[in-house]
Design a protein around this nucleic acid. Structure first.
Lengths: 200, 200, 200, 200
DNA sequence: CATGAATGAGCTTTCATTCAT
DNA sequence: CATGAATGAAAGCTCATTCAT
């Protein structure tokens, strides 16, 4: 019985979670009201407040969850590989899978990078982003040692080029509705481009 | 005398304009209220509505203005140059100047690309962005004819790489408060990187 | 316990309802603000909006209610009677009772016939009024068959005479503050007048 | 020159006057804003305030003007006639002409009888209406002396019947859009009805 | 005689949030 | 675990009116 209750509990909380993610992603955090979320889920407002302290907390939990997915993907598609170029391909692949499987979250995530969000959320985000970037830099420095990245290449610029280009394609995909931007064909061209121009 | 009046008129409208730009840029369109703008400017709400039909119109005019600045810079730093590599340097330079001279506007502009904004504003933005991207593609195709871009290089990927990297650095500058990202030194490294890796 | 809650609910909604009716009747729909209603009732504005979608809906519900009272009275004072002249007396009586028991509503109702109201409300009103008029016409046609109305009498004019006169007396009562207009004595004179001049 | 100026003056004032009458009549006093009037006329708001102290004064002047038209018609169609039944016909005729030639004013006038208007305007209206009613009563008392009205007929009820019926038809015409209500044919039936049922 | 610019007060409506049940 | 009912604060916007010119 307790189990069933727990299950229901999880279900309702999850429905609020997912609905909020979707609404925030498509309309923007500020534009979505608690009422809107509750109506979409089909529960009363006090129910939402039972699960989440306030709107900000809901956002925060959403970010954490979104982030954990992202980390899972990174581990699966990058850290598990041993070949260097496979890992590079993994960087691209992880983004693609994220975009395909969790479109709300990635949209939502891109948004957060720029959106005006409460300060504590902002700093959490910066922390996350910085960590990820640092990992990439380390990966590239290692590539330099291994001879895959030219000695004279500026690692900071290179890292920004990779991240920036991927973000750019995601933005085309999500905000300009350019569905080719993240197509397999295009990402394969991107990989070739990187192999030709950025690595050796 | 009429001149003075006109001047005052322009002054008030301009003050509203600039204040709104600044507030929108730092807090986000939805988070800034009409009252906030008016209080910051020191006028009553009806005064704002005297100059701008509604909040949305204010945003729209802000975008148009911001865009016209951007176009002026593009003309000045890119189209006026004759040497191909000078033009490439101009692309970087124009962004830097924009970021330095009109920080609110660029912040504001980056934000708009992702923010949830009214649909008609969104489509105007897409129009703008698409046009600019098309111009860049044309510029690179020409570079291919001139032999500055390798025959086998994918122009679409290249264009996205350039735009994406610049945006990435701007985001670091504005949203991660990484003031080095747009420093002269770093942009000069970027230019070298492009010369070495993307052009020939 | 649930009963008590329900009672309170109904109470608040009802208090808003009645207060609004009264205010609309005395000051006019446009002149009465939501704030005014809420202050008079002693609740916050969101409470009003909890029960009524918007000001227009409140008006609409008020009209429906007012109308349903009117129909109840018609049934009680007219349709239940069998004698033709008793029914005529009932027409007068129903108006009087309405005016006495629900002065706000009748004031309100007269007002609506002329006031500028939102279009959908206006058409509902026209519908109501037309239906009622049609019933009266049918009643008079029947009277002609029964020989109570002269063969050569124009039914349309007769119906308008009856309705118009009653409205005129109500207007005197409510808007010129002529409290005799709807007095028993006067209405009894009206009945005699109708018997003498309009029927046979 | 002064003449021309005066002419222009009168013209602008008149345009404001007529436009306001039309707007008040169709939308209701409260629903029409000063801005709306000025935009419809094509002048600035201070211009309106130059001619009329405030919105209330504009309404007041409108009522006075409307009233003077009404009195002119009464004189022309009633007081000039010598035959009693010609005068009765004149009562009907005057209303018809008023409705045809000055539709805005009559609409406007009907409205005022019920509308919520500032107190001083309300009392002026009551004054007007009462005077007119008194004149009608006197006319009917005189008819009684002349033998056109039966000895036992209640004059007060008779007067209300006449006024009420005419108002009712006007309301049908203007508010229910029943264009037959004030047609020549129908008014001629009304005259016959009155001759048959109310007079002798 | 007319205008552009400005204002204080007020409008209807919605927000995030909380209470008792 | 969920609900109906309520709230203070604030949103965007418009009102009638006035000033200097």
């Amino acid at each position: 019985m307790a189990q069933k209750k727990e299950a229901i509990h999880q279900d309702t909380k999850n429905r609020i979670f997912m609905t909020a993610a979707q609404l925030f992603a498509t309309e923007g955090y500020d534009r979505v009201s608690i009422r809107q979320i509750c109506e979409a889920v089909g529960v009363g407002k006090p129910t939402l407040y039972y699960y989440f302290k306030d709107k900000e907390t809901l956002l925060h939990e959403l970010i954490n969850y979104s982030w954990s997915i992202s980390e899972d993907l990174i581990e699966k598609y990058i850290e598990n590989k041993s070949d260097y170029f496979e890992q590079i391909r993994g960087i691209i692949q992880a983004r693609k899978i994220f975009a395909e499987k969790y479109p709300f979250f990635i949209r939502f995530f891109i948004m957060l990078n720029i959106m005006s969000v409460p300060e504590n959320i902002r700093s959490a985000l910066i922390q996350y982003t910085t960590n990820l970037f640092t990992e990439l830099v380390r990966f590239l420095q290692n590539g330099q040692k291994l001879g895959h990245v030219a000695e004279e290449t500026d690692i900071f610029i290179l890292a920004n080029t990779m991240v920036g280009t991927l973000n750019q394609l995601l933005m085309r995909h999500f905000f300009l509705d350019d569905k080719d931007a993240m197509s397999d064909e295009n990402l394969s061209k991107l990989y070739q481009f990187w192999k030709n121009h950025l690595f050796q």
